[in-house]
Lab assay of single mutants.
Amino acid sequence: MSIQHFRVALIPFFAAFCLPVFAHPETLVKVKDAEDQLGARVGYIELDLNSGKILESFRPEERFPMMSTFKVLLCGAVLSRVDAGQEQLGRRIHYSQNDLVEYSPVTEKHLTDGMTVRELCSAAITMSDNTAANLLLTTIGGPKELTAFLHNMGDHVTRLDRWEPELNEAIPNDERDTTMPAAMATTLRKLLTGELLTLASRQQLIDWMEADKVAGPLLRSALPAGWFIADKSGAGERGSRGIIAALGPDGKPSRIVVIYTTGSQATMDERNRQIAEIGASLIKHW
């Protein structure tokens, strides 16, 4: 067993022997301040990774656009098919120029040779490549099948209805392509620590998230040296922004954090800054 596999296998073990965790309302004060600064709703939840206990939450059962955070769930569904012998990570998928959609920095470079399922998941999570996500959605049967996968996990809230990039439209009061912070946090925890996926697939999923290259201005910008984070960000229309993450000190994750916002007129930089400040408060009061 590799060191990384050992780390993920012992996530519940280490967490069980940690000192009790206590909620700190100071972080919620910052979440509410972010709402004021952005002029928009902000949803927040913080779960203990081992027990699933909610440590703090704000608007945990209000719907927010998922945006690209759905790509972690998508690759979880792909990995479940791999575990069941219905898919192979090494299978190569070929596609054409007509398949390319807006923001496809990886797939646009491989029109000639195609990409493997493993490479597509890596591109979808680490670079948020939209064509990679659409190609992977095709392998599982489309958005409705991802929703069905989530329902089978016990998540009857999260739903995907459309493809990239239309799913980022974020129309107010439109339930399409949305989740709730509580539902997303619980589902992410199941994917990373539950028995739904094999140990190898859980490790692969967290490795992809740990290698995320496009979430630097968010929670990662607030992390002290030595902290662990595996995350996936999302951005959408109407001032929408979000991030889902597993993080913790001492090089291992111990909490799940989900943050979503929508309806702001603020710039992307300002949305990023507010999420980073929430992260800084979380870490300060850990």
Rank of each mutant, 00 (worst) to 15 (best):
L79V: 06
L160T: 10
V117G: 02
I256H: 00
N134H: 04
T69N: 02
E56H: 08
K32I: 11
A40V: 06
A280Y: 10
A170Q: 07
Y95Q: 02
Y95C: 03
P12K: 08
H5D: 09
Q203K: 12
I125T: 06
P224L: 04
T186A: 14
Y103L: 04
K30F: 07
E61W: 12
F22L: 13
Q204S: 10
L28R: 08
R255F: 02
T267W: 05
E119V: 02
Q204P: 02
R92C: 07
D99S: 10
K71E: 00
P253Q: 08
V8M: 11
R63K: 09
F22E: 15
S254Q: 15
H110R: 10
V8T: 14
Q274L: 15
V101A: 10
S240C: 08
D99E: 14
D83W: 02
L167G: 05
A230G: 12
L74M: 09
K53C: 08
V82S: 08
G226P: 07
G216D: 08
V257Q: 01
Y95N: 01
T27R: 03
Q37N: 15
Y260R: 00
I283D: 01
M153P: 01
G76F: 05
Y44F: 11
R162S: 10
A15G: 15
F58C: 05
M268H: 09
R273G: 12
I125M: 11
V82I: 10
E270C: 12
T112S: 13
E166I: 13
I243W: 04
N168I: 05
L188K: 00
I45A: 12
V117M: 10
W163S: 09
V117S: 03
A230E: 01
V117N: 03
E195G: 14
D129G: 00
Q97E: 15
V257A: 06
A215I: 03
P172C: 11
A132G: 05
N152E: 15
S221Y: 10
Q97L: 14
Q88H: 15
R238I: 07
I93D: 02
L47D: 01
E169K: 13
T179V: 02
E237L: 13
M127F: 11
D99W: 07
G39M: 10
E175I: 14
F228K: 08
A123I: 04
P165M: 07
H151P: 04
V82C: 11
N152A: 13
A40G: 13
L135G: 02
L219I: 14
F149L: 09
F228V: 07
T107V: 08
A182M: 15
Y44S: 01
A34G: 07
A123K: 02
L219K: 04
S254R: 12
S122Q: 15
A215Q: 05
S233F: 01
R238T: 09
K190D: 15
M1R: 01
V29L: 09
S201Y: 05
A84K: 11
D155A: 01
R81F: 09
N173M: 15
I244M: 08
S201R: 06
A170H: 09
L146Q: 04
K32N: 10
G142Y: 02
E61M: 14
I54G: 04
Y103A: 06
K30A: 10
A123V: 07
G85V: 06
L136G: 02
T126A: 10
I45V: 15
N173H: 12
S128V: 00
S51I: 04
D155T: 01
R162Q: 08
I125E: 01
V78Y: 03
L188H: 04
F17K: 07
T198I: 06
T139Y: 07
L19I: 15
R220I: 03
E169L: 13
D48I: 04
E277F: 08
S122W: 11
L199Q: 14
T186P: 08
S122M: 15
R118W: 15
P25E: 12
F70W: 08
P249L: 06
V214I: 07
R91M: 06
I93T: 05
T69E: 02
M184G: 01
T261W: 04
M127A: 08
R220L: 03
L219R: 03
F58W: 14
Q37E: 14
R255A: 04
M115R: 05
W227Y: 07
T69I: 04
G194C: 11
D250T: 11
T139W: 06
L282W: 02
W227S: 02
Q203G: 12
P105E: 05
S122Y: 14
R118C: 13
I3G: 06
K252L: 10
S51G: 09
A225N: 15
G251T: 09
L55F: 10
T262A: 09
D212V: 04
R255N: 02
R255C: 03
I259H: 00
F70K: 02
E62G: 07
I243Y: 06
I93G: 02
T138F: 10
E145H: 09
T261D: 01
A133T: 12
L218G: 04
L38M: 11
A148R: 14
R189L: 10
T193M: 14
A280I: 14
D129K: 00
A77T: 08
A225C: 13
T147I: 08
H110E: 07
M67F: 04
R241N: 04
G114D: 04
R159Y: 06
V117I: 10
E56A: 11
L191K: 01
Q265W: 10
I256D: 00
R189W: 13
C18V: 07
C75V: 10
C121P: 00
L247F: 05
P181W: 00
L191A: 06
M127I: 09
T147H: 07
I278G: 00
K144Q: 14
G43Y: 00
A170K: 06
A211M: 10
R241I: 03
A200I: 10
K284R: 13
F22N: 09
S68P: 00
I140F: 06
G85M: 08
M209G: 03
R7N: 11
K109D: 10
L38Y: 09
L167W: 01
A280C: 12
G141S: 07
L205I: 09
L199C: 15
H285M: 09
R7K: 10
F70G: 07
L120C: 06
R81C: 05
G39Q: 11
R176V: 06
L120D: 00
F14E: 01
D113H: 11
A123Y: 04
L49P: 05
A34F: 09
T262E: 09
L196R: 15
D231I: 04
F22Q: 10
S2G: 08
Q203R: 14
F149V: 09
G194S: 14
T158L: 01
N50E: 14
E61Y: 14
P181I: 04
T126Y: 04
S264P: 03
S68E: 00
R273E: 14
V82F: 07
P105Q: 06
R241T: 05
E166N: 13
N130G: 05
A211I: 07
A183D: 07
L197G: 04
L282D: 01
A9D: 05
A276N: 09
L188P: 00
D113M: 10
E87G: 05
Y44R: 00
M115D: 01
S233T: 13
G234K: 00
L28C: 07
M67N: 12
G242Y: 00
A148E: 15
R273D: 10
F58K: 07
E62Y: 08
G236H: 02
A182E: 10
S281E: 14
G90W: 11
A245H: 00
E46C: 07
P20W: 02
I259M: 08
K30M: 12
P253G: 08
I125Q: 02
M209A: 04
G52D: 08
I275S: 01
F6E: 06
E169C: 13
T69L: 02
K213W: 06
E277N: 11
L120Y: 02
S80C: 09
G239E: 01
T179D: 00
E35H: 02
A23D: 05
T187E: 03
G216R: 08
D250N: 15
K32R: 14
A211W: 08
E175R: 12
A15E: 04
I140E: 04
L247A: 05
T139N: 10
R81E: 07
E164A: 00
L192Q: 04
V42K: 00
S264V: 05
M268W: 09
Q204W: 06
L205A: 03
V78D: 01
S51L: 05
R118D: 12
W286Q: 03
N130A: 03
L137P: 00
S51T: 15
